[in-house]
Simulated assay, not measured.
Amino acid sequence: MTEMSEKQYYVPHTAKWPIVACVGLFVSVIGASLKFNSLDLEPTTPWVMYAGFAILIFMFFGWFGEVIKESEDNLYNKQVDASFRAGMIWFIFSEVMFFASFFGALFYARTFAVPWLGGEGANLATNVQLWSGYEAVWPTNGPGELNGRFETISAFSLPLVNTLLLLTSSITITIAHHALRAGDRKKTIIWMIATVLLGATFLFYQAEEYIEAYQHLNLTLKSGIYGSTFFMLTGFHGLHVTLGTIMLIVITLRLMKGHFKPNNHFGFEAVAWYWHFVDVVWLGLFIFVYVL
């Protein structure tokens, strides 16, 4: 099919995938709610949640496959490309706000809540009335040492290694992008494989770090405000790295199949944008969670 006129705007004739997505989300949320609220519906409850996840996976494969086919059939013009780019920009912005909320919680607890509990400022002598003798130091397990003492993870051990891995992966995916624009597909694939391996190695070391924290340092989600913010930030970032690595694998497989052209490869660019975003978030996380 020939490329469309620039004055036209391609709209898919069918719209079944958004409906499938809604059904999958509804079923998975209902199943998760039943399971996490410990309702006595075993063994039915887990399968409701798993069925929802299965529907979502089916939706992702179907929807993305359809978009890829339409793109390879040259059904999209510059107007559609601009729409895709705007959608990806807004998606990354929403992710920025997502992480900003957790960084904000960390900042508030560390800068305001902990000093107040220690008696700083005119706060009705909080430390005397509620937690006499509490020392406002960071990291803290909270007044009363809620779940015992814990140790923190040194910033210059596995976290530093992971920082170097992600920074290197930003370089490798940038080299791959330049190679794609130059029409060197073989070089692009090689550097994309390197990026995938770096992302997978990051996840491996983060799993090692979690095992060390839980088994040897007594640092868990229950370790006061520090443990909560530590695992929420690093955990959600790890989830994003996992999703990003999956996207990198898909893009690499598409490159092997001959997809993307030097002047038309937004699918590649979107994943590269997302990966750079993940790297920047980790830099902030490394500084404010591990170093400071």
Rank of each mutant, 00 (worst) to 15 (best):
N37C: 14
I92S: 11
F103L: 15
S33L: 03
L34Y: 14
F58R: 02
S83H: 03
A32W: 10
S71C: 02
F107H: 11
T44K: 12
E42A: 14
W17S: 07
V96T: 09
P18A: 04
M59F: 15
I92E: 11
E6L: 05
E42L: 14
F64T: 06
F103Y: 13
E120I: 14
M49Q: 05
N74S: 06
K78M: 09
P43Y: 14
S28M: 10
W17C: 06
A122Y: 13
V20C: 13
I19D: 04
F107S: 10
G65I: 06
V96L: 10
A122K: 13
L56S: 02
A51K: 08
V11Y: 04
D81A: 01
G24L: 02
P12S: 07
E6P: 10
F93W: 14
S5Q: 03
Y9L: 01
Y9G: 00
F98K: 11
G87F: 00
S38E: 03
A113D: 10
L39K: 09
V23S: 08
M97I: 12
L117S: 09
F53L: 12
A109N: 06
P115Q: 04
I57N: 04
K35N: 04
A15F: 10
A122H: 13
L75W: 01
F112P: 02
K7C: 00
V29G: 07
A32I: 05
Y50I: 15
F61T: 07
G52N: 08
F99N: 07
L56Q: 08
W90D: 00
P115R: 06
L34M: 14
R85Y: 06
W63M: 09
M59G: 09
I68T: 12
W90L: 11
V114C: 02
A32V: 07
L117E: 07
A54M: 09
V23F: 09
A54H: 11
G119A: 04
W17E: 04
V27L: 07
L117R: 13
F93A: 15
N74T: 02
M88L: 03
S28P: 02
G119H: 05
F64D: 03
Q79A: 01
S33G: 05
E120G: 12
R110G: 10
S38Y: 11
S71W: 01
A86S: 03
S101D: 10
F58M: 05
V11M: 03
I19S: 10
M59C: 11
I55M: 12
Q8N: 02
P43G: 12
G104D: 05
G118R: 07
G121N: 14
A109Q: 06
W90C: 02
W17V: 06
A113C: 05
W116V: 15
E42W: 15
K35S: 06
T45P: 03
V114T: 08
M88N: 04
N77K: 00
Q79K: 03
F91N: 08
A21Y: 06
L34N: 13
E6T: 08
F61I: 14
G104S: 11
S94V: 05
A113V: 12
V29H: 14
A51M: 12
